[in-house]
Design a protein around this nucleic acid. Structure first.
Length: 188
DNA sequence: CATAGGATTTGCT
DNA sequence: GCAAATCCTATGC
């Protein structure tokens, strides 16, 4: 699911209008066996959405100040989710820039990071656990018909050095090759 | 009940 | 390149 989501679009309805962008970077996280996954601690109040039905949101606060957005991927009762690490904004750009509060940042960098995209799209803990298959307020749309499949690159997940091998090095980070909205470069 | 640390970002050196 | 910001979860006694 992580590479399959690349090129699809993440959309958000807010009182200020429609916001959205193309997903350009993702990471896959597994169940209790994956020592880099929040599910490593089993089913807790925080990780409950990860163990729930697929197509729902798992949203958590990291470092006490940043929200991160995941899409749950496995059947009900099995933990697994895809962290969306970057989007390329394409709808409601001015509002996204306003929400980011950095008026001089180039558009391509507004959603270049898991916490940046949440701020740009007004995603926070209030949306944790919601069903993403119902449309508004938050949903995923297919790429436009006729859009060629993106060139995908992969590499180790970011910021999981604590997990130990093989979890630290397993190439479960995916991105659209050379895209200007990647959160950071892939090693080549 | 106390404490360690994090799927990040930003600003300063 | 490095460290601070800042809160909540998970874990240990």
């Amino acid at each position: 699911m992580a590479p399959a989501l690349l090129g699809r679009r993440l959309l958000r309805r807010t009182p200020e209008g429609l916001l959205g962008g193309t997903i350009v970077e993702t990471e896959a996280y597994g169940g209790p066996e994956d020592r880099a996954s929040h599910a490593r601690a089993g089913l807790t109040r925080r990780t409950r959405p990860m163990f729930g039905p697929p197509g729902h949101a798992y949203i958590y606060l990291v470092y006490g100040q940043h929200w991160c957005f995941n899409i749950v991927t496995e059947e009900d009762g099995v933990a697994g989710a895809v962290l969306v690490r970057a989007i390329a904004p394409d709808v409601g750009i001015e509002e996204q820039r306003r929400r980011r509060g950095r008026s001089h940042d180039p558009v391509a960098r507004l959603g270049a990071g898991p916490a940046r995209l949440c701020q740009a799209l007004a995603i926070d803990g209030g949306l944790d656990g919601i069903d993403l298959t119902l449309g508004p307020p938050l949903w995923v749309a297919d790429a436009a018909p006729g859009t060629p499949p993106p060139a995908v690159v992969c590499g180790p997940r970011v910021g999981v050095g604590y997990a130990g091998e093989p979890w630290t090095s397993i190439p479960h980070r995916f991105g659209i090759e050379g895209h200007g909205s990647l959160s950071r470069p892939f090693a080549t």
